[in-house]
Amino acid sequence: NQASVVANTLIPINTALTLVMMRSEVVTPVGIPAEDIPRLVSMTVNRAVPLGTTLMPDMVKGYA
């Protein structure tokens, strides 16, 4: 099973992502692959992402 990116904290809308905000976890449904974490750093989220939420491609500006 592939690990996905999961919010390690509440990420407010329009926040630039940092490494400490994200962790990898095997979850269903599958979200952004964990190997993309380095690429996500400094990208911003377009909605509030609660703790434990899987990051989906449409949640990160410029990812999809």
Rank of each mutant, 00 (worst) to 15 (best):
N1I: 14
N1Y: 12
N1E: 09
A3G: 12
A3S: 10
A3V: 09
A3T: 15
S4Q: 02
V6S: 02
A7D: 01
T9F: 06
L10S: 07
L10N: 13
L10M: 14
I11H: 01
I11W: 01
I13N: 14
I13Y: 13
I13A: 11
N14M: 15
T15M: 08
T15F: 08
L17R: 00
T18L: 07
T18Y: 03
T18H: 06
L19H: 12
L19A: 09
L19W: 08
V20A: 13
M21R: 03
M21C: 03
M22R: 00
R23N: 07
R23P: 01
R23C: 04
S24L: 08
S24Y: 05
S24W: 09
V27M: 06
V27E: 02
P29G: 04
P29Y: 03
G31L: 01
P33G: 06
P33R: 08
P33T: 07
P33S: 14
A34Y: 05
A34L: 04
A34P: 08
A34M: 09
E35P: 15
D36H: 11
I37Q: 05
I37F: 03
I37A: 07
P38K: 14
P38E: 09
R39A: 11
R39G: 08
R39Q: 09
L40Y: 02
V41Q: 07
V41H: 04
V41R: 06
S42Y: 10
M43P: 01
M43D: 03
T44F: 14
T44N: 07
T44A: 07
T44K: 15
V45W: 00
A48S: 14
A48I: 07
A48M: 12
V49D: 02
V49N: 02
V49S: 02
V49R: 03
L51E: 15
L51A: 13
L51T: 12
L51P: 09
G52T: 02
G52I: 03
T53H: 15
L55F: 08
M56Q: 08
M56A: 06
P57K: 07
P57I: 06
D58I: 09
M59P: 02
V60S: 00
K61F: 14
G62V: 04
Y63K: 03
Y63L: 06
Y63N: 04
